[in-house]
Design a protein around this nucleic acid. Structure first.
Ligand SMILES: [Mn+2]
Ligand SMILES: [Mn+2]
Ligand SMILES: [Zn+2]
Ligand SMILES: [Zn+2]
Lengths: 138, 138
DNA sequence: TTCCTATATTAGACTTCATCTAAGTCAAGC
DNA sequence: GCTTGACTTAGATGAAGTCTAATATAGGAA
């Protein structure tokens, strides 16, 4: 994730303790935290960081294309640092756990012109739903 | 939609003016209204209907499987009366307009076992994004 | 038809998630 | 070290949705 920090500095981002901590919290694979979860974890490293700054920073990271917003359930949005390798999501309908997945096939090619209603289609998002092994065991 | 009313009555649903009006408002193709939009349109037909009743009724219709909740953008949920013919959605990124679409292909088959992480996968939802003709013209 | 009651409706308080504001702070260039 | 415009903050505000407890009514019973 210091790649990220380098890129951000290069883009003229002013580096602050708060921003560094948010970026650190977002490091890892299959990471899809809510803003509140990011805030809790950030507070553990930097007790005085405010919710507003977490929201501001996440919003900036999204604008810069470094983080994706995902809205898999109907609750709080989640933030996905895996923005540079296209992927889709597999969501547990019970506990909300999310995994990154890479299906084969090309869903964009599967939408015939007759089903495009004159839209310019640029993107497709596939969400698989099911029950995770943990929830199935319980 | 009187099909719907018949089915609901058959299931022991107590028929009230409010429920009838909500069901009427949801009639049609490519209908994906927010709860607030349903309420506004219902008020036009039955001025004293409350927001709580609209939310209650929509929730019941969803539980009964007669209406689907769709969360295509990060704003209010939308309610989709087209629950009996499986379909996906094409969303205008600018104005939020939604069309029902029927892509070819079988995305469930496109998720290899190695990408299922032990989940029991039961459902897949495909959301296409683009710009509608209206927004492209403007 | 009238009565009864379980079910439905209502206004408005409350919750959650998110954004905004205006005052204070500080990173980084000079 | 200064200066300054960008950053951070607490708390107010807003939007979407849920809950509550008082009131009304659909539809079956008599
Ligand atoms: Mn992801
Ligand atoms: Mn639809
Ligand atoms: Zn689970
Ligand atoms: Zn549009």
């Amino acid at each position: 994730m210091s790649d990220l920090l380098e890129r951000l500095r290069g883009r003229g981002w002013r580096m602050t303790a708060q921003r560094r901590v948010v970026a650190e919290v977002l490091d890892g694979e299959h990471v899809h935290l809510t803003a509140d979860e990011v805030h809790s974890r950030a507070v553990a490293k930097l007790p005085e960081i405010s919710r507003a700054t977490v929201y501001n920073t996440l919003g900036e990271l999204v604008s810069l294309g470094e983080v994706l917003e995902v809205a898999t359930d109907k609750r709080a949005k989640r933030y996905d640092p895996n923005a540079h390798t296209p992927h889709h999501h597999l969501v547990c309908a019970q506990c909300g756990a999310i995994r990154d997945v890479h299906p084969t096939g090309n869903p964009l090619a599967d939408l015939p012109d007759s089903e495009r209603f004159g839209f310019t289609v640029s993107d497709v998002e596939v969400t698989y739903r099911g029950v995770c092994p943990n929830c199935a065991a319980a």
